[in-house]
């Protein structure tokens, strides 16, 4: 069982749709503790990514990820642009020339991608950021890979851990990003970046679940 380059394109395309559906939800989450632009920024970026789809039709997975990363970098702005841009650029470096990905490949790809986000954002688990959803999801994916679970089950565990991670941000006091200026007032709100990150993982599991 592997993830093909077409599956990868479908993931990106589906995520653009998920972002459009959740644009106002993400913006509302951001309005509570940030500056009310996360949904609009992500939607602008992924609509631009959709515009690049025709030129990616025959490209390898590395090129697909790199193009997505560069497009996000130049269209999203805010903190989301460099963070999601870096996530996809790092994924692209690990998948250069590849036309399909095994579960092991997925682990190394997400490991590089998430390390890139950590490096760029200098955040740790518990800071109320994207990392709170991404890091536990990666751990779950690694564990499933070590246990030789089928891809569909590994991805389900991946998304589920991301969901728990996202939910764990609600009581946290933000230590990074604009929400940190609120201090204790940031507690009681789910982090918008962790939410868009969870949706990315959930979309992967939904898209690739029957791969």
């Amino acid at each position: 069982m592997t993830i093909s380059r077409d599956d990868v394109l479908m993931w990106i395309k589906n995520y653009a749709g998920v972002i459009r559906e959740n644009k106002e939800y993400l913006t509302d989450l951001d309005a509570a503790i940030g500056d009310a632009d996360h949904g609009a920024n992500m939607d602008r970026g992924f609509q631009a990514v959709l515009g690049k789809m025709p030129e990616l039709a025959d490209k390898d997975i590395g090129t697909i990820f790199k193009t997505v990363g560069m497009t996000l970098l130049s269209t999203v702005g805010g903190a989301g642009g460099p963070l999601y841009g870096t996530l996809f650029l790092q994924a692209g470096m690990k998948t250069a020339g590849k036309m399909e990905l095994s579960l092991e490949d997925l682990v190394t790809t997400f490991e590089a991608a998430i390390s890139g986000v950590v490096m760029r954002g200098k955040a740790e688990v518990g800071d109320k950021t994207m990392i709170d959803a991404l890091t536990p999801a990666l751990e779950a994916l690694k564990k499933a890979s070590e246990e030789n679970q089928p891809i569909a089950e590994a991805l389900a565990a991946f998304a589920e851990a991301g969901k728990k991670g996202m939910e764990s941000t609600t009581p946290l006091v933000a230590k990074k990003g604009r929400a940190s200026y609120l201090g204790a007032r940031s507690a009681g709100h789910q982090d918008p970046g962790a939410t868009s990150s969870y949706l990315l993982l959930r979309t992967a599991a939904d898209t690739w679940g029957d791969a």
Partner: peptide
Amino acid sequence: PGAVFTSPTPD
């Protein structure tokens, strides 16, 4: 200039 209240981009 970025979008309203949004950082501009590296390019």
